[in-house]
Simulated assay, not measured.
Amino acid sequence: MEYPSKLIERAVEEISRLPGIGKKTALRLALHLLKEPVSASEALGQSIVELRKQIKYCKKCMNIADSDVCGICASHRREESTICVVEDTRDVLAIENTSQYNGLYHVLGGVISPIEGVGPDELNIEQLIERIKSSNGTVAEIIFALSPTMEGDTTAFYLTKQLKDFNIKISTIARGIPIGGELEYADEITLGRSIASRTAYNQE
């Protein structure tokens, strides 16, 4: 594609790096920004820079936060005896939107995937183990809310083995989520019922 300006070409190249955005969409967005006031582009650029430089991760659950401890972990209204283990922040948002869960979370930062070279050491698994150890018996249940894929099941199986020495109930969300589907794309009713009707996790 020929561009009328090197500046447009550079903008298109950078915007198209975002997931789900091709060159044509990137060009449309770049041309849209040119029609907007300069202040709008400056505000967009500043928000992205601040996002990258100032965002933090909760020291307790590893979720994205504005401070050292996220709002969920800091809340006195949450049930501290239950921890819901999820892949990333998008899953936390999806579950929170159901209003069916009032416990805490732990964000793994991914799932075990040998094909992609992601092993247990690349995930926030050790932080989860230490969190349970330091809870002095407060944690009574761990819920696996991982996408029902091969990678999700592998991660759940590995976590179960790591948690076997703790006197903790281990459960997983009910299979109301389609096999092979992604948690973030599930509708709120299905996801809410899956959380409410969770079942004990079986290794066999």
Score class of each variant (00 low, 15 high):
residue 1 M to G: 13
residue 3 Y to M: 06
residue 6 K to W: 01
residue 6 K to S: 15
residue 7 L to D: 12
residue 8 I to H: 06
residue 11 A to W: 03
residue 13 E to S: 14
residue 14 E to Y: 10
residue 14 E to P: 05
residue 17 R to A: 09
residue 19 P to M: 07
residue 20 G to P: 04
residue 20 G to M: 08
residue 23 K to N: 08
residue 24 K to D: 08
residue 25 T to L: 11
residue 26 A to D: 06
residue 26 A to V: 05
residue 26 A to Y: 03
residue 27 L to C: 00
residue 27 L to R: 13
residue 29 L to I: 14
residue 29 L to G: 06
residue 32 H to P: 02
residue 33 L to A: 12
residue 34 L to E: 12
residue 35 K to D: 14
residue 35 K to A: 11
residue 42 E to C: 01
residue 46 Q to F: 07
residue 47 S to W: 07
residue 48 I to F: 14
residue 49 V to W: 02
residue 49 V to C: 01
residue 49 V to L: 15
residue 51 L to H: 04
residue 52 R to P: 00
residue 52 R to K: 14
residue 52 R to M: 13
residue 57 Y to E: 03
residue 58 C to V: 01
residue 58 C to T: 07
residue 63 N to C: 14
residue 64 I to A: 12
residue 69 V to R: 01
residue 70 C to G: 10
residue 70 C to E: 09
residue 75 S to I: 06
residue 77 R to W: 02
residue 79 E to V: 15
residue 80 E to Y: 03
residue 81 S to T: 14
residue 82 T to R: 12
residue 89 T to D: 15
residue 90 R to K: 13
residue 91 D to N: 13
residue 92 V to A: 05
residue 93 L to Y: 12
residue 95 I to V: 12
residue 95 I to M: 08
residue 97 N to P: 00
residue 97 N to E: 13
residue 99 S to F: 12
residue 99 S to W: 02
residue 99 S to N: 15
residue 99 S to A: 13
residue 100 Q to W: 00
residue 101 Y to K: 07
residue 106 H to K: 03
residue 106 H to L: 02
residue 106 H to I: 03
residue 107 V to D: 09
residue 108 L to K: 04
residue 109 G to D: 10
residue 110 G to W: 08
residue 111 V to M: 09
residue 112 I to D: 09
residue 112 I to T: 10
residue 113 S to E: 08
residue 114 P to Q: 11
residue 114 P to N: 12
residue 118 V to K: 11
residue 118 V to C: 04
residue 119 G to Q: 03
residue 119 G to M: 01
residue 122 E to G: 02
residue 125 I to L: 03
residue 126 E to G: 01
residue 127 Q to K: 15
residue 129 I to E: 12
residue 130 E to D: 14
residue 135 S to V: 08
residue 138 T to L: 15
residue 139 V to Y: 07
residue 141 E to Y: 07
residue 141 E to I: 07
residue 146 L to P: 07
residue 146 L to F: 11
residue 146 L to D: 10
residue 149 T to K: 08
residue 149 T to F: 08
residue 149 T to L: 09
residue 149 T to Y: 04
residue 151 E to W: 05
residue 157 F to M: 13
residue 160 T to C: 11
residue 160 T to L: 03
residue 161 K to N: 13
residue 162 Q to P: 00
residue 164 K to R: 13
residue 165 D to F: 02
residue 165 D to T: 11
residue 166 F to M: 10
residue 167 N to A: 15
residue 167 N to S: 15
residue 169 K to V: 14
residue 169 K to F: 02
residue 170 I to K: 05
residue 171 S to F: 01
residue 174 A to T: 00
residue 174 A to D: 03
residue 174 A to H: 00
residue 174 A to P: 05
residue 178 P to F: 10
residue 178 P to E: 10
residue 178 P to I: 10
residue 182 E to V: 06
residue 182 E to W: 00
residue 183 L to Y: 02
residue 183 L to W: 04
residue 184 E to F: 03
residue 186 A to P: 02
residue 195 I to A: 04
residue 197 S to I: 01
residue 200 A to L: 11
